[in-house]
Every structure is written in C-alpha cells, then in structure tokens.
Design a protein around this nucleic acid. Structure first.
Lengths: 195, 195
DNA sequence: TGTTTTTGAGACATTGAAGTCTCATTATGG
DNA sequence: CCATAATGAGACTTCAATGTCTCAAAAACA
C-alpha cells in the first residue's frame, strides 16, 4: 500500500528494460534474458533485480506495451469524425508504435483476446473507444463492408499493420511509406478499378 | 549414394512426424520435441531415431512443408487464365494447406526469403510459376494495383491467408468461409462502394 | 510360423538458460 | 564531498529440454 514513487533513475531503468524487452521479443520470441539485458544496456543482474523471473518481465512488458499503444491510439480520437478518417488516424498511430504492436501481436495470450469477450483484462474502461466500436460504427454508416465480421476486420487491421512493420523492418518498404501503403491496402485491397 | 528406398512403414512414420512437427510448431514455436512426438503418436526415441536433433527435424519439416505447399499451389495453375481467377485458385489452394503455411510463416528463416532474391534455396526452378510472377502479370494487365510493390502484395497475400487460418483456428470464422472471406478482403479491402 | 523390422519405455548424461547471491565500483543527490 | 542508491561482473545452483543408449515388446513380412 505504501507506494514509494520510485526514484527517477529506477523508473528510467525500468522503462529501458521494458522497451528493450518489447523490441527484442518482437523480433525473436525465443530471445534470452541476456539478449534483452544487452539491448537495454543493462547488466543481467540488474534485469533480474527489476523483474524476478521471465514471466514477470513478459507480463510487465505486455502491460506496458498495451499502455503505450493505448496512449498512441487514444490520440487518434477514433470516436470523432467520419469513420474512414478516424480509421486512417488509427492506422497511423498504430504504425507509429509498430514494434510494440509487433510484440503484442506475437504474444500468444494477447492474440486470444479478441475471441473471448468476457474476462478481458485490458480495456475494461467503457469510456475508452474500442477499435471494434469504430468498425461497427463504420459498418452502420455503410463505409465498411457489412458482410465482413467486425472481428475479422480488426484482425485484418492488425495483420496489415504488422505486415507493414515487418516489411519496413526488412527494408522492403521505406519507413515513411508504410502508413499510406497499409491504409491503401486496408481500404481497397489490391484490385484496381474501384470508385 | 546407395539409396535404399526406405520401407513403407518407415516412410509413413517419417511423414507422420513431419506433419506433426509442422502442425504443432505452427501453433507453438516453442513446443517441445516430446510434444511433437506425442502429436505424431510416436515415442520420443523414435523421433530421435529419424531426426538426430531439433535442427535437423525443423529443417526437414520446412522442406517438407514447402513441398506440400508447392504441390497444392501447383495444381492452381497460376500461369493459366485471367490473373484474378488464378489468384482465387491460389488463395483456395493456400487455405487448404493452412497449417503448413502457418508453420512456414512462423519460421524466421523462411520469412527472409522474399527479401534477398539471390541465394533462394527454394523454387530455383524457372518452370514453376511464381506468386510474384502472377502478381506482376496481374499488374501488367491492370488488374492489380500497380502502385503497390509486387513484393508487398505477396506479403499481404500471405498475411491474409495466415490471418484467415488463425481466425478459423480460434473459431472466429467458420472453416468453409475462410477462402471467400480472404479473397474478398484481398481483392477489395474493407471499404464499400466499389465497382 | 518364424524371422527381421520397428518401436516404446525408460535410464542415463549433457547442455544452456534461468534464477540467486556477493562484492567491488560507479552514479546520484543532498 | 560524503552518504546512499544503483549497477555490473561473475560465481554458483537449479531445472527442463535435449540427446544417447539399451532392451524387451510389438508389428511387419516372407
């Protein structure tokens, strides 16, 4: 209960470790704690000092990445304005936190999230607008394909952002082109002759 | 050099192990050799008898899955007929071998494949039509978006098939609906009002 | 049936990552 | 500048997965 706010140094170190964990694990799920410590420019002992064991670290990294992604996407204000515009802002925000997203995307527990809607430990706050909500709003307004399930569309959204991040990672796609490419593909697919 | 063709029993066992490896590893990259042996309904000692160590097994499973996928997609005859039709056949064929594809998709070495075009150990045979070839043909005929890179389109193709497989795996999508949903999304994206 | 393959159970040894601990060194903040 | 906080290096232990081997049972086959 008595919650000493934690010194500046400590919280900075903690952040470095969490960031490194997300970044390293996004690229290699089997990465070693030593790998993560090295990426965080921190001794392995220090890492263990902050996070007793691997499970604790990964859990914390997941929670932290959720916060980061949530904060980024919150700024997109996806409950405001036309769904298409909102979706574009959302995609841009997601691409901005690409490696956090890739990390979450690769975690088996997080992937299940969309399936079971009941015991969702994340985003229980009804005041935070959800992606599904945006999609359903768009479908109601006839902007998004109503014959596709909202969950499916969400999965596609994640998959495309992830693919874009990965392509940039491999140098297949320039960083600055990822967002527009993902948006274009997400909205229109790959076949020409629309509109 | 002297290549005894291997008894029927042995080749059947070998196939069971390779299939189980792909299937199990597709769902959990960190799976244990014991897990794989169990899925193959084979003793752990038998597995080691066929594949001395993990690396050999995984390599063999990758090669095997490549063959399976290639055989399935070859039947799609993607160099025949209109690109759109060919692509639909290709997608159907890929969905059919979903777990093999998911396994390959999850293997770090395979993912790099599209990046470097030179030392590609797979598909060096110019008589086998490539996915990239189909995409470029489609772009040349104005069917596929020419502003998107062919490699990007290929990545999207893989990602959507994988997402479809995963959705079916989680019960989010009925098995029989995967192919049409993937095709629809791949071709048109999620926004309505085309054509 | 009898012979040869093929297999499974289980007893090891090995390995590498995970986790624990100490202690000297470095950084931080008053 | 000093007291305290924070860190890094490294020596250990633990542990689970791996890899090796033997032997008796089961299956395939002629």
């Amino acid at each position: 209960m008595s919650d000493t706010p934690e010194s500046g140094t400590r919280s900075r170190t903690r952040r470095a470790i969490l960031g490194a964990a997300a970044s390293v694990l996004a690229r290699d799920r089997g990465a070693t704690l030593a790998d993560i410590a090295e990426a965080a420019q921190v001794g392995r002992s220090t890492l263990h000092r902050y996070f007793p064991d691997r499970k604790v670290l990964v859990d914390a990294a997941v929670a932290d990445s959720f916060r980061v992604v949530e904060r980024s996407t919150a700024e997109a204000a996806i409950d405001q304005g036309p769904p298409l515009e909102a979706m574009r802002r959302l995609i841009a925000a997601m691409v901005d936190v690409g490696d956090r997203l890739a990390f979450l995307f690769g975690d088996p527990r997080v992937l299940e999230e969309a399936g079971c809607s009941e015991p969702d430990p994340f985003e229980p706050d009804p005041s935070v607008p959800t992606t599904i909500g945006l999609i359903e709003r768009g479908q109601a307004e006839g902007v998004f394909d109503p014959e596709l399930g909202a969950e499916w569309i969400q999965q596609v959204l994640w998959a495309l952002v992830y693919t874009g991040w990965e392509a940039a990672e491999k140098g297949q796609l320039p960083r600055h082109g990822v967002t527009s490419t993902v948006i274009r593909t997400f909205e229109n697919g790959v076949v020409t002759g629309k509109r």
